[in-house]
């Protein structure tokens, strides 16, 4: 555990909590892509199946349970409790265009051809692109609530911090996981455009709106 890894995890946790609280307090999931949230629930489910097979640490186990629990709670709020506020007309990204190729790639490029390992690989690849329905939705509506941008910023920063964690681990532990690194780079790149808008607009007190 190093400082990049820990702050990355905390940033990830902050993102998840910000989104849950935003929906809960406003009693609305307007502007939130339910499809991205279903993909994240799928990511955590397929990645954390090792909760059933191996114990790494209390930290590891509790964070996994919190992440996966919050992911399902978010999906429940969007598709059940506050379904009336869900903006399905703007959430039109075709997720099969992500899930099918990612599934195929997980079968082809993995560390070990075993069910758990393929599902873990699938989750790593899927996570890297799971935010696309949300970004697509924002590009369609042309705007995002400020609290939604805080969520996206924390979620983007988390994987960027993991990149520094992997550099650290490579130098000090000789640890190196090509699958996670390449997917993490892709994931972080997808946020770059958003980071630019967040820093130049939201941090200066302006609402995030895109030119028509």
């Amino acid at each position: 555990m190093n400082v990049f890894r820990l702050t990355g995890d905390l940033s990830h946790l902050a993102a998840i909590i910000i989104l849950l609280l935003k929906i809960w307090k406003s009693r609305s999931c307007a502007g939130i892509s339910g499809k991205s949230q279903i993909l994240f629930a799928l990511v955590f489910t397929t990645r954390y199946l090792d909760l059933l097979t191996s114990f790494i640490s209390l930290y590891n186990t509790s964070m996994k349970i919190i992440y996966v629990g919050c992911a399902y709670a978010t999906v429940y709020l969007i598709y059940a409790k506050f379904r009336a506020t869900y903006d399905g007309n703007h959430d039109t990204f075709r997720v099969e265009f992500l899930v099918v190729p990612v599934g195929g790639l997980a079968f082809l490029v993995n560390h070990d051809f075993s069910p758990l390992e393929i599902l873990w690989t699938f989750s790593i690849y899927l996570e890297s692109v799971a935010i696309l329905p949300q970004l697509f939705m924002i590009s369609k509506t042309g705007e995002a609530e400020t609290i939604t941008t805080h969520y996206l910023f924390c979620l983007g920063v988390y994987r960027a911090l993991y990149l520094f964690n992997w550099i650290w681990r490579f130098y000090f532990e000789g640890f190196f996981d090509m699958i996670a690194i390449v997917a993490g780079v892709v994931q972080t790149i997808l946020y770059c455009d958003f980071f630019y808008l967040y820093i130049t607009k939201v941090l200066k007190g302006k609402k995030l709106s895109l030119p028509a």
């Binding site: 996994k64 992440y67 996981d177």
Partner: peptide
Amino acid sequence: DDDAVPKDEL
């Protein structure tokens, strides 16, 4: 491919 490594990361 190389062998699977234990997953201590989240």
